[in-house]
Design a protein around this nucleic acid. Sequence first.
DNA 1: GTTTAACCCTGCACGC
DNA 2: TGCGTGCAGGGTTAAA
Length: 277
Amino acid sequence: MPELPEVEIVRKDLERDVVGRKVKDVTVKLPRIIRRHKTRKEFTDRLAGRKITKIERRGKYILLGLDSDDVLVMHLGMSGHVERATGRKAPDKHTHVIIKFVTGGELRFVDMRQFGELFVSARDALDGVKELQHIAIDPLEDSFTWQYFSGLLVGRQVKLKTLLMDQKFISGIGNIYSDEILWASGLRHDRLSDSLTSQEVRRLYRAIQEVLQDGIRHRGVTLEDETYKDLYGVAGSMQDHLKAYGREGQPCRRCRTPIVRERWSNRSTYFCPQCQV
DNA sequence: GTTTAACCCTGCACGC
DNA sequence: TGCGTGCAGGGTTAAA
């Protein structure tokens, strides 16, 4: 389930591995993945012969800058990942788009559940893309200060988990990391944002940064379904360090109370009923 | 402004 | 063993 840390790992891997490479040709095996384009050709023609110049991230979106002033936008959805491969190894059945490079080797977009997508946009038209224009501040940016964060909370009365997962509020946090952040800050998912003391706001702010950085340090969460892997097919290890998510019935690492799983907004939410208040 | 539900799709568990 | 059914899973958006 790629969230900010997983997407950031992919961004870093791509930055090291594909910047400077020139695209030879592109194969789209499943048009659904490029659903914003009317035809395959409209997509592939804008990539063929182009050199990749830089890799950026906006929330959970990855932006591959091209030397044509176009940008290849990538969203991993729920089960997507990107892998570097040689043409020798046959692509598995969930490989939907293959980008071949002039220097050999290729980039494969793999996504079992097909919620991910790729599209090409002119760089100066990016701000007009609905999903990108509303993306809020990145919690790992320098400008995400404690003052800024507490300012965001002013006048809002929303449950904390809803707020954390709201990409218009802060970008990059999904179901797994929101549970971890709330556990780390000792706050319940259904606490209302305007009920926090300034000490609790500070704890939440710290937890957001620490948990996300931890996720990056451990190269992301790879669950049993193994849908997320880095560019080289290597699994992350953050799943071994989770304190709440996926630990239903297991003792809380702080107070030994069994972790509870609750159905919340059509999602699983894991928390400690004792030490998260 | 906030909450809820539905949708996207595949794999898997379950019952017959 | 094989088939059909139902549901989990995350992000987004439309509707309430």
